[in-house]
Design a protein around this nucleic acid. Sequence first.
DNA 1: GCCTAAGTAGAGGGATTATTCTACATCGTC
DNA 2: GACGATGTAGAATAATCCCTCTACTTAGGC
Lengths: 172, 172
Amino acid sequence: MSEQKSKIAAGLEREFAARGFAEPSVEDLRDASGVSLRTLYKYLPSRDEMVYAALEHRHHRYLAHIFDDLEQGQSETLNTVIERIAEWMKKEASHGCLFHSAVAAAPADDRLRNLLIRHKAEIADKVSRIANLPGKQTDIILVLEGLTQSWPLQGQAAVDSAKRLCTSIGQN
Amino acid sequence: MSEQKSKIAAGLEREFAARGFAEPSVEDLRDASGVSLRTLYKYLPSRDEMVYAALEHRHHRYLAHIFDDLEQGQSETLNTVIERIAEWMKKEASHGCLFHSAVAAAPADDRLRNLLIRHKAEIADKVSRIANLPGKQTDIILVLEGLTQSWPLQGQAAVDSAKRLCTSIGQN
DNA sequence: GCCTAAGTAGAGGGATTATTCTACATCGTC
DNA sequence: GACGATGTAGAATAATCCCTCTACTTAGGC
């Protein structure tokens, strides 16, 4: 991914996150990406491509935010992940997961759905390995999905619930 | 709500559930509702109103599906709720919660967001009262949200996880 | 100083959109 | 059998959409 393409993708990600995937017109996306319409279409030759590029960019930023400098195998590793997710929600995703939003906006788009699946699978894999709970992938996903989904409604209380529920995962 | 209006709403709900909120044109919605364009606009004078009516209809059907003939206070009540949610997902919501989809498609619409909040609050209230766990609302919501959100990705494994996690809610 | 590559600004095409409007059909009731 | 309410079918409108295109500018390498 070239310098400029990722700069464009960053702007697109911000716009889609703020206004959803249906509302912004291509002209809005041009303004958000900070380049001309011609350049925008040169790097991303259709509106769909703009969506994909934004999500790709999101994916990398999210992984970096959750996993950078995360110590493996500590007993509080899972709590740290939960806190970092809460941070992320507060700063970046007050409306919930951007991947789910994208799929919700276009349920027929298989490429989009695959992006969502790979995104979630990579997170689940990384978390279960780093927290030393290899058999508990589905439990972990359920709690983390529940957290991102209920945080917009419940705020900090959701974080506390997630931590409480996680203590029971390791216990059987 | 008149006879015909709820017949229209039922058709709209089906269409939005199948194709999302952005894709279907008003002509598609006309076909799905089974009436003429003029009649459709008579009962629901804008496309937004069609969305609201569809969600209202969904809300009532969902509550009926989850709570009809549900025995209060049994120890397996929560498990029954989980199983009914799984049933619902399988039959009706293979793409996830329709309310979240609607909000995702139009994040700026406050009326839509309020509909989502009231929908979730009513469920949380009903479940916590019927399962005799009045202090555990946020735990319950988190698990149920996690279930609906991870079911499209994990299927039956998500149901098992939800049940397992629920056993730990009552225990402290 | 010229040339190529890569950018900007912005007009416009062609398709689709939500909504309104006209003209006609049906049906129960008096 | 006439009438008013309520329906249908579908054309018309005005706006908006995604995308392409032309014409002009900038910047760096030889």
